[in-house]
Design a protein around this nucleic acid. Structure first.
Lengths: 242, 242
DNA sequence: TTGACTTATATGTCTAGACATATAATCGTG
DNA sequence: CACGATTATATGTCTAGACATATAAGTCAA
């Protein structure tokens, strides 16, 4: 019954404790809301020190499988099946990973005072300057994605003088703005004339749209819309269950 | 210089150590590949025990910010592709959360021996039975999503007798299969005749497609394709930065 | 009954050690 | 020089304690 099924050869004790509890949760033996044994009970059961038990439980708490409450105990959390980890790679890296030749082409680059539409899109109130860029990424000379980007120069002044004719703005930003928060919105549209031309697909063909809004500590950095031919591009999100 | 910027009031020592290192990584002061100080050096610097330092570093390693190598040290990891947390809500919950009336309609339900196509879709080798379901979800009586699902009866035998005319199969499965792993693939298509009819949209309108493949410890449970009208549905993924 | 105070307790953090283990670096040997 | 054996060392795990702290539960007075 409790024969270790996933034990490699000799897992460490805290990992065994963690796996034991995890299994009980995953099989439903301990349903959401169930109070799992107190640390001192597990200490007695496994004949180890509290620190060892604590490490196991801490990791389970970090993985959101349990919730720990002082004085009350540790409880199985409601499964959050809805949350999956979506990996959105840098386009250049993505194409390289596929073993295909990456190509980049700057279509337009404009420096201007932020229009109302720009400010709306970036979610900033104050007036300021922005760089607007449209460009295209290709894999083996086949259009892969069309990019339409706005960079807030008050957050990233260097972007005014950066040379985006050779380096894609996404890569440049990754290099110059080391850490960001972002929100992605995924939707679908059909290609209009301009999109169809940029991606070399038929007007009316499906496109996957990723709108990414990036900021850093409440400071807007960039807003970008990426258009992918819908029939050739897929986003994969993997559920993370601990 | 090292004034705590994000310290609430009195963070614990290991959290401070973790934050200090994290900041250096995030600002680029310690670039990818950089060897961070050895545990014994940090012990000396912070005047604490090794366990405290170890806890900080272990968490950083778990967050994939650093990589730890025995005998060699701990190194800043190459920035990973942007990984974002995508929340894909249960459709009923999603609609309820919007304050709209949830509606469900079973269109067809067939129990059959798995065809080659079925086995392909579920990723199973052996022959067996499946339940094929098509149904429709609506919000305030407006079509919201079309669902096309296959359930592997060898994994979920109870699904053969479940009444899917009232309860959506997604909800039923959530109730009967306590924990799962899943992979979501997101793409875009244009509506064909059947889809257009099911969603009450025009043929050729964009649709967002979510293919979800669910299993549990290497055991296939269900494969489902959800079609959403592309202009009305959006998926939001939030970047998780630490 | 309700609100304020006290107490018991489970978790949170930390220490100063210990031995285990993987592996980079060094040393020998053919 | 190439390759195998040895050694040094950084991390991995663990212990048997300690004190801190949040809070559920009980106590008591208004």
């Amino acid at each position: 019954m409790s024969l270790a099924t996933d034990a490699a050869d000799k897992p460490t004790l805290y990992k065994r404790i963690r796996a034991d509890i995890e299994k009980r949760i995953l099989t439903g033996e301990w349903p959401p809301g169930h109070r799992i044994p107190f640390e001192h009970e597990l200490v007695a059961r496994y004949g180890c020190s509290r620190m060892t038990v604590n490490k196991a439980l801490s990791e389970l708490a970090q993985a959101d499988l349990i919730e720990r409450r002082r004085r009350a105990g540790s409880f199985v959390r409601r499964p959050q099946h809805q949350s999956a980890v979506l990996k959105i790679a840098d386009i250049r890296a993505e194409i390289s990973a596929l073993g295909r030749a990456y190509g980049y082409e700057l279509i337009s680059r404009k420096l201007r005072a932020a229009t109302t539409a720009d400010r709306d899109r970036l979610g900033v109130k104050k007036a300021g300057k922005v760089v607007a860029i449209t460009c295209r990424h290709s894999a083996d000379n086949v259009p892969f994605a069309a990019e339409d980007r706005l960079i807030d120069l008050s957050s990233v002044p260097d972007a005014a003088t950066a040379d985006f004719s050779r380096e894609p703005p996404g890569s440049w930003l990754l290099h110059h703005v080391p850490w960001t928060e972002a929100e992605h919105t995924i939707s679908a549209i059909v290609a209009d004339d301009r999109t169809a031309e940029a991606l070399d697909i038929a007007v009316g063909a499906p496109c996957l749209v990723i709108d990414r809004y990036t900021w850093r500590s409440a400071r807007t950095i960039t807003a970008v819309r990426l258009l992918y031919p819908g029939d050739s591009h897929r986003l994969v999100a993997r559920f993370k269950g601990g």
